[in-house]
Amino acid sequence: MSEEIILDVKDLRTSFFVDDFEVKAVDGVSFKLPKGKTIGIVGESGSGKSITALSILRLLEKPGKIVGGEINFKGNDLTKASEQEIRSIRGNEISMIFQEPMTSLNPVYTVGQQIRETLKVHQGLGKEQGMEKGVELLKLVGIPSPQERIKQYPHELSGGMRQRVMIAMALACNPELLIADEPTTALDVTIQAQILELINELQEELGMSVIMITHDMGVVAETCDYVAVMYGGKVVEYADVKTIFKDPKHPYTVGLLNSIPRHDIDVDELEPIRGSVPSPKNMPNGCRFAPRCPFATDLCMEELPDLGDVSDENLVRCWIYSERWDGDPEVKEHGPKRTT
């Protein structure tokens, strides 16, 4: 990757301290995002996707704390930035949209008031200019009759509309990086298609970089350039999008792909991953995936593998691809089997 890297996250670790117990929600997340590209962060619920996103903007709630790692945004480590510095970045250089469009807007202020606020804080725009720019933004995100809509309260808008408003608000100051945390999970597919198309278009138009957090491999395939697969608070595989789907190396990535019921082709039998996601309170010591992995060996149970190069394209956290692998030689040769 010779492009300019806008965001470089290195071994990020974020924990929640509850009753003298450390819940390691994010425990070693690394990825690089080239400027103008989209990276997908995928994983099942509880794998640490949202906490990763919140950590980048330092929006963690109380018992949560970044305990290690670096978040380099344009060469500036955000974990070390002052409160004031980070505030001037939020909503300005890095914006975020959330999963729940229904509850993410303040119910007691109009759409216009909420958009104007961002413009005022970062660009010092007054009421009239703010209103003008607000209407422009609503038009940009495809809201019909923006003049009227801007005076409405969130409850007067549908879910899809609210998500458009959230996007308008996020785009108000032309951010260089947009973090979208499951922006379409709560929406119907036809509305999801609208929103994803909108984000794609705006990205091209404005040259933004995007972090797309999702649990839907379909969304990843259609929107991302690079993918980081998370499991148990860790990135287990990182590659460009084609490689992730065509030549996945980590047993979890493969398991995930084999579990998806496809709407475009017939699959006789799904190949689910056995067991379920471990709770963060009793994470396995070795490889987090070992209790569910069909290839696990004693080594996997005891020692945690590093995220290492496997090929030019993949970074994988798995013992299979190391010299120390003493399990099934077949897997090492061909990788875990795709069934779909």
Partner: peptide, 27 residues
């Protein structure tokens, strides 16, 4: 304070005081 829109307000880069008095208190 735990509502999603408070997080949105913080994500906009507002000062904590503004978040509390403008966004939280009215609700």
């Amino acid at each position: 304070i735990t509502q999603d829109y408070i997080r949105t307000a913080r994500a906009k880069g507002l000062k904590e005081k503004v978040v509390i008095y403008r966004h939280a208190l009215k609700n």
